[in-house]
């Protein structure tokens, strides 16, 4: 199952950004998440899912891309 919904809930809890206003395929940076806010968000995502997102994924820019990464890491963990 895609983690997109949970990621949307997390960004809403943390930064007050309504899922309806953030297209999963839109650039989070262009939506006002600067590099510092993005670091904080990824930290919260790691905590929430109990995963570690390596620097290889530093270019992730949309929630959809992030969901793919999170799903992959969760699947790797379950395997």
């Amino acid at each position: 199952m895609s983690s997109l919904k949970e990621l949307q809930n997390l960004i809403h809890d943390k930064f007050g950004i309504d899922p309806a206003t953030l297209d999963p395929n839109a650039s989070m940076r262009e939506k006002g998440l600067d590099s510092l806010a993005l670091v904080e968000y990824l930290f919260a995502v790691e905590d929430h899912f109990g995963i570690s997102i390596s620097d290889d994924h530093a270019n992730v820019d949309t929630l959809s891309e992030l969901a793919v990464v999170v799903d992959k890491l969760k699947a790797a963990q379950a395997a």
Partner: peptide, 8 residues
Amino acid sequence: FTKLQLAG
């Protein structure tokens, strides 16, 4: 501040 502006 908005929540987003409060990062860090």
